[in-house]
Write a protein that binds this DNA or RNA. Structure first.
Lengths: 118, 118
DNA sequence: GCCATAGTTCAATAATATTGAACTATAGAA
DNA sequence: TTCTATAGTTCAATATTATTGAACTATGGC
């Protein structure tokens, strides 16, 4: 029998857990990757795209943390678990938070990646 | 001889370190308390106001983390170390990030603290 | 000099995170 | 229905990170 995939209700989602989740580069990468596609993506696909240099157990734990903190939802489709960011729900619970964090990460990256001297 | 109190240059400040720092309730409390006063506050005063239930060594480590991630600056005035949030510098480096995080924490708190039934 | 206050450092311990191995879940083929 | 393959989870061992008491440094006043 299939266990039900549970996700926290948005009223139980905390800022601390979200910040903690997104302070890890791997989890940030996963969230950014999930946001790129419409309709979600399975874990293996995400891991493959990001070339995550870690075993699937670690990867699974990162997904668990993202799920438990309320950032992503996982839905089973056949053999796959399709994950997606709970964007609109998060926007209601904490308006602008995710966008602001992602914007700051983009700004940081832009300041880090300098054009090479020719 | 006095060691120089060093703080990271803003160009070296990372989003990950800031999120990690602010995902801890004690450090969040410190930052919020520091923002309440103009001109900064020393560590003991902050700890006293927050009634931090921890030894000063732990408190000192939290301040170190806040300093090293670029969130606060410490300046010696006599026997005290006066701490303050690097608000304007942070606003230049990551516009809106701190404000957005604090706003979300406020919203979370508002949703948690319900009026009692009479 | 001595004493008091403010904070840091360090090494031991406590708590979290990572991982390999064994497991469950689903689908399709034999 | 059993066998095989793919996708992911769980668990217990290990590695990393956080907390803390004790000893330390720093500054100012007596």
């Amino acid at each position: 029998m299939s266990r039900v995939l549970t996700h926290p209700h948005m009223r139980d989602v905390t800022v601390a857990a979200i910040l903690h989740a997104l302070s890890d580069p791997v989890r940030l990468g996963i969230v950014k990757e999930l946001l790129k596609v419409r309709g979600g993506m399975n874990c293996t696909e995400t891991a493959h795209r990001l070339k995550l240099p870690m075993p699937k157990s670690t990867c699974s734990q990162h997904y668990r943390i993202l799920r438990e903190c309320g950032l992503i939802a996982s839905e089973r489709r056949g053999v796959d678990l399709i994950c997606s960011v709970r964007t609109s729900e998060l926007q209601v619970r904490f308006p602008g938070l995710l966008a602001s964090i992602l914007a700051s990460y983009r700004k940081e990256r832009a300041s880090r990646v300098k054009p090479r001297t020719p």
